[in-house]
Simulated scan of single mutants.
Amino acid sequence: MKQLTLGFIGLGLIGGSIAKALKAACPEISIIAYDINGSTLALAMEEGIADRISSSIDASFSACDYIFLCAPVSKNDENLKVLKQFLTPSCTLTDVGSVKGDIHRHIEEAGLSGQFIGGHPMAGSERFGYINSKAILLENAYYILTPPPCVSEKRVEDFRQLVTAMGAIPLVLNDEQHDYVTAAVSHLPHIIASSLVNLVKDSDSKDGIMKMIAAGGFKDITRIASSSPDMWQQICLTNTGNIASLLEDYVEALIRIKEQLYKKDAQFLYRFFDEARIYRDSFIETSSGPIKKSYSLTIDIADEAGALASIATMLALNNISIKNIGIVHNRELEEGALRIEFYEEAAIQTAREILKSRGYVIYEKK
């Protein structure tokens, strides 16, 4: 890959992870970064990720071969208006937002469609900010590209190669297809998970019995309800049509299920659960996708003093970071007494080997 100059407008979790991944793969790349957080820019310089920093969007970005719009979606339009005066025709402009229709409209209004390729790296974390960014965040994750029809094949291919260099998997869709697909497999599930959590909250007794026993399967299927409310507010406001349409279909499906419940239609109910089981089991096991994978396992441990501390210490001595650890009280949908969650796939693989070598019985979900 030839020496490139990359610009980043915003250097948070995703922007920082892209910059780190490309620096690791191609150290000769030069990076210019702008962020409203001065300490972020200082840290990026200190770590050798940014070669030049800017306190504003200025003429220094005119040297860029690629510019990544990585600020919050609500700021992209404002930043784009300032950036436009510094763009050269050869520069490829891209973004990292999870809704593409809105940014494509702004790009078209700005007359920049010929040099824009929408981007959506399907990776993330509950943590945020540059300080939590890491090159491996994008590893083997789908990175959806949404070029307008007028963008040249060469420009798309060059950007595809850049995405591959990050360690991600490029996938080309149009912006309308992207927004419909992500509404179905990401946006709607977040609404459903949050609705289920709020339903239990509103239905619980004063002594919180539901909350107390929700730590098993219910907590797993609603895990994504812990995501940023700011981000999901913006997603719902920008992909409204697709989400509302699919939500209407989902509501109709729930009504049909309710009707069959009242009829006690055993055949319908069996088919409903069986078809879902078969389709779900056909999913490819991968770390990519809009809803990040949870790296967790459960193990059997003795109910005795020091048992949990012993395992935590054993993993710590092997430099394995634990994201969460705790006793599973509701095991209706889960085997094992102790659940351990990790940040990365590599960590769970190492932990599995260590625990097995010490004689622990390990259970992992499909």
Results as ranks from 00 to 15, higher is better:
L4D: 02
L6A: 10
G7S: 00
I9S: 01
G10L: 04
L11R: 07
I18Y: 11
K23Y: 08
K23I: 10
A24P: 00
C26E: 11
I29S: 15
I32V: 09
I32H: 06
N37H: 09
L43S: 11
S55E: 13
S55R: 12
F61S: 09
F61I: 12
F61N: 13
Y66K: 09
I67M: 09
F68V: 14
A71G: 02
P72S: 04
N79R: 04
Q85R: 15
T88Q: 14
T88M: 05
G101L: 06
H106V: 03
I107Q: 03
E108Y: 04
E139G: 12
N140D: 14
A141N: 13
P147D: 03
P147H: 01
C150T: 10
C150A: 12
C150W: 01
V151K: 00
S152H: 10
E153I: 08
F159Q: 07
T164V: 03
A165G: 03
G167P: 10
I169D: 06
V172H: 05
L173N: 03
V181F: 09
H187K: 12
L196G: 10
V197Y: 09
N198M: 15
V200N: 11
S205L: 12
S205A: 13
K206W: 14
G208Q: 04
K211D: 13
F218G: 06
K219I: 03
I221D: 00
T222G: 02
S226D: 06
S227T: 14
D230T: 10
W232H: 10
Q233C: 12
Q233K: 15
I235M: 00
T240V: 02
D249P: 07
K263R: 08
K263T: 08
L269C: 05
R271F: 06
I278M: 06
R280T: 07
R280E: 02
R280H: 05
D281H: 09
S282T: 01
F283S: 07
F283V: 03
F283P: 02
T286N: 14
S287I: 10
S288Y: 10
K293Y: 04
Y295V: 14
L297R: 05
T298M: 15
D303H: 12
A305L: 10
M314W: 01
N318Q: 07
N319G: 00
I322H: 14
N324H: 14
G326H: 10
G326C: 08
I327G: 02
H329S: 15
R331S: 01
E334Q: 15
G336M: 07
E341D: 08
E341N: 12
E344R: 15
E345Q: 15
A347H: 14
T350Q: 13
A351K: 02
R352W: 06
E353D: 14
K356C: 00
I362D: 06
